[in-house]
Amino acid sequence: MAVSVDEAVATGPARDHTPPARRRGGRGRSVLEVALLTLLAVVMLFPVLWMIETSIKENRDVYAIPAKFFDFTITLDHYRDVFVDPDGGRSALSVSFLNSVVVAGASTVLATVLGVPAAWAYSRFAVKAKKDQLFFILSTRFMPPVVVVIPIFLMYRQVGLIDNKLGLILIYSAFNVPFTIWMMKGFVDEVPAEYEDAAMLDGYTRLQAFRRFTLPLLVPGIAATAVFALIFSWNEFVFATFLTSSDDVRTAPPAIAGLIGGTTTDWGLVAAASVVFALPVLVFAYLVRKHLIAGVTLGAVRR
């Protein structure tokens, strides 16, 4: 993994000046670069900070003109509203969070169970037209969701999977399987096939060799892959919004988007819900940061 490697590419500029001048020029430039980086980091992070700030502001401070950056009253009311209904009991949002957990979890398990063995088989065996198959698998992942959702909608209407968690789980699995196969194939390729050959010389079957010797070595890779699948399913919006409608089934993304439907929008609540929704993703993404490049390119680019 290249990013976390703490080894400079080129340490400082090397110009054709005399040493002292060169050092001063280097420092001036270095300061400029640090300043530029800081500015960019602030710009990139400001919306996130503003979201967190809005989520703990009192309503009158949320809509203050000009915007209040520092002296506002802190409240956790919005967070309470995310989970608790005004009339008591669980809020619709908290139900949708629970649905998201179920849908994302189940689809990740299904994609892993189907994808990991397939990845192993693609890595180990001479499959006919292997490359074409793998490219076909990956290209299904690039289909525009809006196009896929039209026939899926009609299909689900026929079999009663509209507004059903199982319907979402299936379509998310189908979108995660290509990713799982590509990502896992990379991990399997890294485990020498000789381990299995040796085990088979000892009398194990191929399947046993896979289960007893290769699979344990793949566990970290499987975990990382599953985390990315989890994030994709958790964040997905298009299928969720078109294939579900009722509060009991709806996942969090369409539920949060639904908060802005009316005439007035409670932006404090939107911000709090967004923070609650985004926090697990950021934690999980941090856990798999070593595999981020492979993860976000669907396993296509590995370092």
Binding site: V3, S4, L45, V270, A271, V281, R289
Partner: peptide
């Protein structure tokens, strides 16, 4: 470098819903 990279990567991990809603507000 590690810290900087991690910080810069935050927007990418957010759901388009969160990103869209929040920018709409901003």
């Amino acid at each position: 470098r590690g810290v900087l990279t991690t910080l810069f990567l935050v927007p990418m991990m957010l759901s388009p819903v969160v990103v869209g809603l929040f920018w709409r507000f901003m």
